[in-house]
Every structure is written in C-alpha cells, then in structure tokens.
Design a protein around this nucleic acid. Structure first.
Lengths: 194, 194
DNA sequence: GTGATTTTAGATCGATCGTTATAAAACGAA
DNA sequence: TTCGTTTTATAACGATCGATCTAAAATCAC
C-alpha cells in the first residue's frame, strides 16, 4: 500500500557510501548525499531517518561488501601463506588505485571518538579482521605455538592493514605501502620458520 | 607601531591545536576556535588569516612540540633498544591517557586527501619518524645489514606507530595497544639477533 | 472510483558556517 | 596633541548546514 519507492535503495546506499568514503562524515553534506544518490532530501530522510543513520547503513554496507568479503576469502584458503599473500596483494592493489583508504579506518579516526555505538562497531570489525589473521596463523602452525604469540602476530598484521590504509589515503608512495605489506606477511613466515 | 596585541599568540595556537586535535578539522568551527583561544573572531582572522592557515600553524606546532621532540630523544639515545623502548613506552602512556590520538595521523586521514600542501607536510613528517627509526637500527647493527632490510624494518615500526594512534583514538583496549608496541620493538631485537 | 497511505518534489525552516565591515580603543611617531 | 597604524569588540554578511513542511503524485484495498 502507499506509493511505491521510486529509487533503488541498495544502490542509493552504495552511492552514499561512496560519498562518505571519499569526503568523510563531517565534510559530506546532506545535499551532497541527495545529489550522489539522485534522490531529494525528503526521500533521504523518509527512507533513512537522518544523516547519522544513513552513515550507519553505509558503514554496514562497506563491511559486508569489502571487509567481510576479504575475511571470508582468507578463511576459505587452505594455504595460510597463500591466503595472506592474496589478501595483501588485493589490499595493495585497491589502496594504490583508490586513494580513499578504508571507510572503516577513516571512521575509526573521524566518527568513532564521538559515537559510542559506532565505536563499538568499529572495534568489533577490527577484531573480526584480527581474528581472521589469528585463524590463518593457527592453520599455519597447527597450534604448536602458544596462543599469546599468535595473538600478537595477528595484531601486528592488523596494524599493517590500518597503517597501510592511512598512508594510502594520505598519498603514501607505492614502495612504502609494499614494504609494509611484505613485513606483515613476514610476520607469518617468520612464525612458521621458528 | 599600532595597537599592541593583547593575547599571547603561542598560547592561542596551543589552544587552537588542542581543539583541532580533539574534534578534527571539519567539526571544529571558527567560533569553537575563538572560544578556546579566548579571542574574538576578528582577532583570529587578523592574526592567522583564515581557518586553514591557523590549522597549519597548529600542525606545525604539534610537530615541534610532540613528534620532533620524540624523534630527538630517540636520536639522542646511545642504546637503540633502550631508546625504542622509551619511545614506545611514552607513546603507550600518552595514547592511553589521551584518547585524541595523534594530530599528524588524524590529519593524514582527514585533511591530507584534500590539501596537497598539507599532504606533503604529513608525508615529510612521517618520513622523519621513519628515518629516526632507521638511524636507530643503523646504530643497533653498525651497518652490517643490507639497507633494504633496515628500511623495511623502520617502515614496520612506523606502521606500528600509526595504527597504535588510530586504535587509541577509536577506543582500542590497552592490551591490543601494548601488543602492537611489543611487536614494533621485536622488529628491532629480531634484526639484532639475526 | 474512493479512501487511505506512502513517496515524491520543492520550498523553506532556524541555526550555524567561514568570513568581513565598522568603528572604537590603544599604541608609536611627529 | 595629532596622525597613522594596528588590534579590539560587535555586528552582520551571504551561504550553507541538517532537517522539516506542504502538497501533488502514485499506489493498494475496498
């Protein structure tokens, strides 16, 4: 009942996500969003509530579309070293061709300090990535190492992801980005060869 | 000649820096700044030009007051491992008591993508930190290693600094932060013991 | 078709944005 | 003292902010 929605909601969320991803939360106005989404401001508020709520949809969509897809691929790879190599190769390629960095990391810096709910989502998502690294290291070593070392190694690899994304957004050069990715993989190979 | 300035300019820059550091560039209004600096908007524009120019002063002040001071201490330390330990201990303590993160890293995410001049400053400053790590590793190994390894190790340590600061701002827990700091120091000790 | 309901488009809300105009106040030079 | 110069305080500028109102358009149940 009622007039049916004339716009494609998932497509609109993607358009809004691209805008937030590019410019950040504060620098993106509701008019920027309605232009990018090709809908009027009234439709935006009718469908999504307010700016913050739309941003939540966008971040969730980002996590589903990008972060969790990478995690799933890493988990699905039998050879952890191969999986990690593919993971960081893709991350490098994406970071060098798309200088917006990572919406999750950008949000960790810009919105998380002022939004406890989003801060929890950010921390949980980062933990998902760290856990995926941890599982890859468990597969690599068949649990011969104390868990403490694996957790620290997984955190070092998460740290590489974060800084790589920050540096990419700030215009860091390819050599530095590659260097960090190699170090992250070396964490795994070093653990294996111990 | 002319009426003398009634406010302490360096103190005003510090107050503005604290505001930008806390809230970020876009979320800080000129009125927020003039309140924090205890001067009127007219005085602000008279003394600093515009908002962006004031921000440049603030970032320069941050680099001089914090980043370069840490670098100088690391350079001054004869024992590189001790120097790095002190460096990361201080970084941890600062990150856990002050959740604003690092103004340089925050700026890398929020302002560098839209300001080529500030992007150059950000990259140059990150390089200063990386180079300080590199020098510490050179002292540690007395140049027995190929430079390529040292550069990669220095970058891995810079990566730890960046992600540590991002995680701290987003509310990351103490354990994760300590874990990353330990990994960074382990990069140096592993190189030494090779 | 009629009524109920929802989405559309467009105008507009008060608030706030970065910035500037105005003029009084406070100094050094003459 | 008077003049020239700079800073101060206050008010205000046009533009834009996030959000909302009104009314026309589009659908379903009946």
């Amino acid at each position: 009942m009622g007039r049916p929605r004339a716009f494609d909601q998932p497509a609109a969320v993607i358009a809004a996500m691209d805008q937030f991803w590019l410019r950040g939360y504060e620098a993106t106005s509701v008019r920027d969003l309605s232009n990018a989404m090709s809908i009027t401001g009234a439709s935006l508020y009718n469908a999504f509530g307010d700016k913050r709520s739309l941003f939540c949809h966008c971040l969730e969509n980002y996590l589903d579309t990008y972060a969790r897809r990478c995690i799933a691929q890493l988990d699905a790879c039998d050879d952890p070293i191969l999986g990690l190599t593919v993971f960081f190769d893709k991350l490098l390629e994406a970071s060098l061709t798309d200088r917006r960095g990572c919406l999750l990391v950008n949000s960790a810096v810009e919105v998380a300090p002022w939004d406890p709910e989003l801060a929890r989502l950010v921390q949980a998502s980062l933990r998902e990535i760290e856990d995926s690294f941890h599982r890859a290291l468990e597969r690599l070593l068949a649990m011969r190492q104390p868990d403490h070392d694996l957790r620290a190694a997984a955190r070092a690899m998460l740290s590489a992801v974060i800084s790589l994304r920050v540096l990419a957004r700030a215009g860091g050069d390819s050599e530095r980005l590659h260097s960090i990715a190699r170090s992250a993989i070396a964490v795994a190979t070093d653990l294996r060869d111990t």
